[in-house]
């Protein structure tokens, strides 16, 4: 997740103080990892430098800040580009499991056991997320769903690979 562009998106709601931005960010996205104040101000400074944000002058808000920030036209353009450019699906998750399975088959180690262990680890994580999801609000339910569907995809790969082990072993050793 790109926390800088997410912050930019929040400023586009309305001109905001750094303090308020951090509160809103943490409420929406900080379930696992809240932003440090230092990171918020460093990000704001970088976006001002890049012409994406502009300070609106000094006036006191609810928090300790005196400056509010607004999104510039360049900032709006950057935001739209980020939002409507599809993310490239990640392919990296499977690689290590794939490599381990192939090496296990090549070297005569127990590939079924490594898949079973991986599967158990994935299921444990899925159970933990499902428990957390049950008491979560709808917004965080979306977040848990995203994680759960990704783990499910791995599990399907693991099950499919387990079902193909005999055939795979023959192919790898041919």
């Amino acid at each position: 997740m790109d926390s800088a562009l997410t912050l930019l998106g929040l400023v586009s709601l309305k001109p905001s103080y750094g303090y308020d931005l951090k509160q809103l960010y943490d409420r929406l996205f900080g379930l696992r990892k809240p932003l440090a104040f230092g990171q918020v101000y460093a990000t704001i400074a970088r976006m001002i430098r890049d012409g994406l944000l502009a300070p609106l002058g000094e006036e006191a808000g609810d928090g300790p800040d005196r400056k509010r920030y607004a999104v510039t036209p360049d900032g709006e353009e950057r935001l739209a580009e980020w939002m409507f450019t599809p993310d490239v699906p990640s392919e990296t998750l499977q690689n290590n499991m794939f490599a381990k399975t192939v090496v296990a088959l090549l070297t005569g180690r127990d590939a079924q056991r490594l898949l079973d262990l991986q599967r158990a680890c994935h299921m444990e994580q899925m159970r933990a997320l499902t428990r957390q999801k049950q008491s979560a609000g709808l917004m965080h339910v979306l977040l848990y769903d995203h994680a759960l569907f990704h783990i499910e995809a791995d599990l399907r790969w693991i099950d499919m690979t387990a079902a193909r082990l005999t055939q795979l072993r023959a192919e790898v050793l041919a």
């Binding site: 159970r127 499910e152 599990l155």
Partner: peptide, 10 residues
């Protein structure tokens, strides 16, 4: 697996 994840173990 998403149904199974409601269980205590599998």
């Amino acid at each position: 697996s998403r149904t199974a994840a409601y269980a205590d173990r599998d």
